[in-house]
Simulated assay, not measured.
Amino acid sequence: MKISIVTAAYNASQYLPDLIESIVGQTYPPFEHIIIDDGSTDNTPQILEAYAQEHAFVRWWQHENQGQYPTLHQAIQAVSGDVLCIINADDKFASADVFETVANYWKQNPMSQILYGRTLRMDEDGNPLPNLDPHWKPSRWLIRHVSYIQHCSLFVSVPFLHQNALYFDLSLPTTGDWDWIIRLFHTAQHIGYSSHAFGVFRMHANQMSRTGEDTSLQGRKIITQKHHSSFLISSLIRRLLIYRGMFLLGWDILRKKGMSAFIRRMRLWIKKRLSTIRHGS
């Protein structure tokens, strides 16, 4: 089983080493990590070259800035493994046995087209954030209404991907990953789910959905219209999942660390949530 990882990097020097180190430390070795630098102006190319010199599985090159989805599209075309995972340069894998879990699953389920695991969420300082993931087996109806599956926790059969031309819609400025996952799940016949946490999704102020011309709120409206789902229902489910995640994480902090830690974290969440609302997401 050859596992390919794909990343589009733009000015990613702050978090990129965390991602690559989470791959270096895997108990099951990756076949390749294809990273395209999308015209970075920081020292991202120097970081990539240093890792490529040290680790043969790191393949990278640079082109002029084209945007995230065209860059990922190009990287996907270059993949030569059996399964792939697309992970952002500011995310990372949750534990050292993620690839081993994926390889064992496909060994036991060779007809599978998709394997999805849980996603952990954190802020830029590494503090845990409430999860949208309801810990349910994937639901085609639910995924059309709320983007609770992150592609850093999603492994896809490469032949299945190419045979069905399941690539990113390059007309979408944001939320193209949600659109891509919806189409994956509506096409696949053999979908696996693992309660194992595969990816860590990092929330920070410089994410594309916060800084692009199209806000994530507008992007969600576009996706719900495209896939004939209800934006009102989508917003309601998303809010319920956020509150559920806040309750579960808050209860865990209160139980393990006490009231003072709980109050500090609640203040942090409220501050970040107000900032998110101001950015329209």
Rank of each mutant, 00 (worst) to 15 (best):
H73G: 01
G245N: 05
A56W: 00
I233T: 12
T101F: 00
L240S: 12
A56Q: 13
A96C: 02
C152Y: 01
I23W: 05
H204A: 01
R121H: 09
A12N: 07
Q108L: 14
T187H: 10
S4Y: 07
E64M: 04
Q225H: 12
I237L: 15
V98D: 08
Q218P: 00
T215V: 04
H63Q: 13
L170P: 08
L154C: 13
R278P: 00
V83R: 11
L72I: 14
S209V: 13
V58M: 04
N109F: 15
I191G: 03
L142H: 05
V146H: 06
Y10H: 14
I76R: 11
A261V: 02
N88L: 01
I277V: 15
I35H: 04
M208F: 00
D125R: 10
K226G: 02
M259P: 00
S22A: 11
H204W: 14
T276K: 11
P138E: 05
Y28P: 01
E21I: 11
E21K: 13
L166G: 09
K257E: 15
P70L: 08
D82K: 04
I87A: 01
H73Q: 14
L16I: 07
D123P: 10
L115V: 15
S4H: 06
H196T: 10
T187V: 02
Q26G: 06
R118K: 13
V156Q: 07
I237H: 06
N11C: 08
H279M: 13
I222H: 10
A52Q: 15
D38V: 07
A103Q: 13
E64H: 12
G219N: 05
L19D: 04
D91V: 01
I114E: 07
V58I: 15
V146W: 02
T276E: 14
T174H: 01
P29Q: 14
L132G: 11
L170M: 12
R255K: 15
W269H: 06
Y167G: 07
D177L: 06
L254Y: 12
T44E: 04
T41S: 14
Q207S: 07
H55P: 01
I87M: 01
L16D: 03
L241F: 13
S22V: 11
P159H: 08
P130S: 06
L161D: 01
L16M: 07
T211P: 01
G258A: 11
A75T: 02
L120K: 13
A50C: 04
S235P: 00
L72A: 03
Q189G: 15
A75L: 05
Y51I: 04
G117R: 02
I114R: 05
P29T: 09
G81Y: 08
A205Q: 12
S171M: 04
I20C: 08
H279E: 12
S112I: 01
E100T: 07
G258E: 09
Y69S: 11
A50M: 09
T174N: 08
R265Q: 15
V200N: 06
Q62F: 00
V146E: 06
I35L: 04
I86Y: 06
A52R: 15
P138I: 10
S80P: 00
A9Q: 10
L236Q: 06
P70N: 09
V79K: 01
E64K: 14
I114N: 07
R59H: 15
Q68Y: 05
E64A: 14
D177M: 05
R244A: 04
L129P: 02
L84S: 09
V158D: 06
S80N: 14
T101K: 11
E124I: 09
D38S: 07
F198A: 02
I47P: 04
